[in-house]
């Protein structure tokens, strides 16, 4: 493989991996706080993609406006999912919330099929995003560079919120001990809602960028990226935000590079994620950055 080809694949993997990472962050944040796998997360991703499709292609709004509206719409949906499907089950056994999550996921996918129809719709990419820039014989597509850059900026912003702000302190505290955190005056429901909002906004952005990369939207487009992002979260260590990003990147690289080097394996593309999952569960079940549970003294 020529160096040029390798660089193309590298950028491609970086883009795919950072999208997995963005989705994985939503899983990991909600799991970290509620010990709940929010199966509906992949469908929020799908809704974000649909919203931007309708805003820009149907209603002919400028891309900037469409992106903002799509993020707002998907975030609102994420908040509604928490309010309607999870919050009433906060003190119920964990399995109830998990079943509710699966139910919400099916509901959203089928609702989307009814409302948007099951027909995939083509997304028209803005030309400036696709116009290749030649750099030393490599054709760089602006979109390919934008995706990882935006993703890393978002992760940096999120880490700032979690580690440097008061609501972030509340989030971290809730993930260890909800009752004690309430006793400190933290409105737990508000912080949980904020967590869902942040996770949903990131998923929506990932959905938008996904729709631009593979230029189409369809109701079940969130299923596979959702499952893979969940694997990425487990790989990185559930509960760890940098872990989710690293897991996403690892997965992106495994998928892209294995096909780049062994094109005959391309039929198995989706299987690599699961191989990675099995390996990490065997070797290091807490994930790369997963923290060992410290015993209370």
């Amino acid at each position: 493989m020529s160096l040029n080809m390798f660089i193309q694949h590298f950028i491609n993997a970086l883009g795919l991996g950072s999208l997995y990472g963005l989705i994985a962050i939503g899983y990991t944040m909600v799991y970290g706080i509620l010990r709940l796998i929010n199966f509906a997360h992949g469908d929020i991703f799908m809704l974000g993609a649909y919203f931007v499709y309708f805003a820009t292609i149907h209603f002919k709004l400028p891309w900037g406006v469409g992106v903002v509206l799509a993020i707002a719409g998907a975030t609102l949906c994420g908040l509604l999912v928490d309010r309607i499907a999870y919050r009433p089950l906060r003190s119920a056994p964990r399995i109830s919330a998990l079943i509710s999550a699966i139910g919400v996921s099916f509901f959203l996918e089928n609702l989307a099929t009814v409302v948007f129809t099951g027909m995939p719709r083509a997304v028209v990419q803005p030309p400036w995003l696709m116009h290749p820039i030649p750099v030393r014989g490599i054709r760089l597509i602006p979109l390919g560079l934008m995706v990882p850059v935006i993703s890393f900026l978002l992760v940096a912003g999120l880490l700032w919120i979690v580690y440097r702000t008061k609501p972030g302190l509340g989030m971290r505290a809730i993930s260890f001990d909800i009752e004690t955190t309430r006793l400190m005056g933290v409105s737990v429901d508000k912080i949980i809602a904020l967590t869902f909002a942040l996770g949903s906004a990131l998923a929506a952005l990932a959905g938008i960028m996904w729709a631009l990369r593979y230029p189409r939207v369809e109701p079940f487009m969130g299923v596979f990226p959702g499952v893979k992002a969940f694997i990425a979260a487990v790989f990185g260590g559930v509960g760890s935000i940098p872990g989710a990003m690293i897991g996403g990147l690892a997965l992106g690289f495994v998928e892209i590079m294995s096909i780049a080097f062994f094109p005959t394996l391309s039929g198995y593309k989706d299987a690599f994620a699961f191989v990675l999952l099995i390996v990490i569960l065997l070797v290091r079940p807490t994930g790369l950055m997963g923290e060992k549970l410290e015993e209370k003294i």
């Binding site: 971290r172 505290a173 260890f176 001990d177 004690t180 955190t181 400190m184 410290e294």
Partner: peptide, 25 residues
């Protein structure tokens, strides 16, 4: 304010962060 039984310090937060959490409101 209630300081609950068993201390319930948040083990992964630093001493200073635990105090800041107490001042959350």
């Amino acid at each position: 304010a209630l300081s609950p039984e068993g201390r319930r310090i948040l083990p992964q937060l630093t001493v200073r962060e635990n105090l800041l959490l107490g001042a959350y409101i």
